[in-house]
């Protein structure tokens, strides 16, 4: 594990330096604004540095991971004296858990120094953001591992989060009735993220590099992905309250069917032979 962390940090040294500089810039900016506005009456000094830092660093993570694949670095790392599992864990620790914890610690320390009276609220905001971003990262990592080409990873991520944003409120209503406290929601989010990470780890150690050009790299997940696209799009279209007649109800199936057909085409690459020969 030590070797995996050492090797990956050596390779990605410049990106880590860049991310740190970006972080320092944001910290200076946030602290500067806080000091500048704190004496102005009725001025909100709530800068929410922690979540901002987490988001910025996780965007760097996404770019770095996509870059690793396009530069064939993944391919080479599989041949090195680190296992696939160690590489997966290194990335999760350095690129997901590390930034989330670092951002929270920085935010809490700065709040303790500058606005001690706010510390419990900032702590809660950071924990909530950390749990949510940890979950979002787990979904991205899952997509990153299961989907092959980079542009499909990007499209898959946009689709999944887009559908998530639209379907989210429906699930919140359902979940809200069962899980009635913020703490429980946080626990469910963290456990769901951990489950996705464990599934990602299992896939990462069993995926061979020859599937890199395939839309879905795991055979057993090809149909589930098509079904997921269909169901999530259908949930979005059917959540529209105007679908109360047979015509509008059936029209709600058009977009899900198109999306599922396109996904099916990319995953299974069916070849249609058009010929006049009998």
């Amino acid at each position: 594990m030590k070797q995996a962390i050492k090797l990956y940090t050596t390779i990605r040294k410049n990106q880590f330096i860049m991310a740190s500089l970006l972080g320092i810039f944001l910290i200076v900016f946030a602290v500067g604004s806080n000091l500048l506005f704190r004496n102005i009456p009725n001025q909100e000094t709530d800068y929410e540095l922690g979540p901002v830092l987490m988001v910025v660093w996780l965007i760097v993570t996404v770019i770095v991971l996509l870059n690793d694949q396009s530069r064939h670095l993944d391919t080479w790392l599989y041949t090195q004296n680190i296992s696939r599992g160690q590489l997966f864990l290194t990335r999760v620790i350095l690129m997901v858990v590390g930034p989330i914890i670092a951002a929270s610690v920085i935010d809490i320390c700065l709040t303790a120094m500058l606005e001690y009276h706010n510390i419990s609220r900032v702590l809660m905001v950071d924990i909530t953001a950390a749990a949510n971003l940890f979950f979002i990262s787990s979904v991205f990592i899952g997509i990153f591992i299961v989907i092959g080409p980079n542009w499909m990873k990007a499209a898959g991520t946009v689709f999944t989060f887009g559908a998530g944003i639209m379907v989210g409120p429906i699930f919140n209503n359902v979940l809200g009735s069962r899980v009635n406290t913020d703490t429980r929601i946080l626990m469910v989010t963290i456990i769901a993220a951990l489950v996705i990470f464990i599934a990602g780890y299992y896939c990462a150690i069993n995926i061979s590099d020859d599937t890199l050009d395939e839309a879905v790299r795991i055979r057993y997940l090809k149909w589930p992905v098509v079904i997921f696209v269909f169901v999530s799009t259908l949930t979005v279209t059917m959540s529209n309250p105007n679908r109360n007649t047979v015509g509008t109800f059936l029209a709600g199936f058009i977009l899900p069917l198109i999306c599922a057909a396109v996904t099916f085409g990319f995953i299974f690459k069916p070849t249609l032979k058009v010929t006049w020969d009998k």
């Binding site: 064939h72 004296n81 680190i82």
Partner: peptide
């Protein structure tokens, strides 16, 4: 035995990370 993997060198040709 991943600890022995530095006993073997292979890199894809011609597309590999060296280029960057």
């Amino acid at each position: 035995t991943t600890w022995l993997h530095d006993q073997l060198f292979y890199i894809d040709m011609p597309e590999n990370w060296f280029r960057y």
